[in-house]
């Protein structure tokens, strides 16, 4: 079953072509200790991020979110902090493939950037492929590929192969 997504917007990245390595800082892209990763996560944006973020929170991004040469550390840290969903105007395909395979729900929603503020609540309706912001504004998602749904449902690529492909 697909997970319920009903989370607060822990951060809104307004910059198009956002390079997700900046979430942990380029000097930290080779970190291997998860506690260290969490400690540096988002501190350039909000020094208290680690204490205010909650399990189930989501992120919102602009166009071509994930541009650049994305490394896995940023989202390892975010996943460890309970962030497993990003709604964006659009995603960079390289980032999209890599992170969906880690079970992160990357959902393209045209108009999302205008529709939310930090700490807005966004609810996903998987069947209708729609999101609702603060219980009021309804936005249509771009078509969510079956592969994305399968990977999010299975949690990661290995579970997906085991459950859907073997």
């Amino acid at each position: 079953m697909l997970p319920k997504i009903n989370g607060r917007v822990a951060w809104k990245f307004e910059e198009p072509n956002y390079d997700i390595d900046n979430i942990i800082g380029v000097e930290n892209i080779k970190l291997s200790d998860i506690e260290q990763m969490k400690k540096v996560c988002m501190t350039d944006y909000d020094p208290d991020f680690i204490s205010v973020v909650q399990d189930g929170d989501v992120l919102v991004g602009a166009e071509n979110f994930g541009y650049g040469h994305p490394h896995y550390v940023a989202f390892k840290a975010l996943r460890a902090l309970g962030v497993r969903t990003v709604f964006a105007e659009s995603f960079n395909p390289s980032f999209y493939k890599g992170e969906v395979a880690n079970g992160v729900a990357l959902i393209e929603v045209p108009g999302i950037l205008e529709a939310v503020e930090r700490w807005s609540t966004v609810t996903m309706d998987w069947d209708r492929e729609e999101v609702t912001v603060d219980g009021k504004t309804v936005l249509k998602c771009s078509h969510v590929p079956q592969r994305t749904k399968d990977l999010v449902e299975c949690g990661n690529l290995i579970n997906y192969i085991r459950e859907k492909r073997l």
């Binding site: 390289s94 493939k97 890599g98 395979a101 592969r147 690529l157 290995i158 192969i161 492909r165 073997l166």
Partner: peptide, 19 residues
């Protein structure tokens, strides 16, 4: 085509899911 970490799909099943 770059499939990122989905190379394992091909190793495990010979196939890869692509749009």
């Amino acid at each position: 085509i770059s499939v990122r970490n989905a190379v394992i799909e091909a190793l495990a099943t010979n196939q890869v899911s692509i749009i």
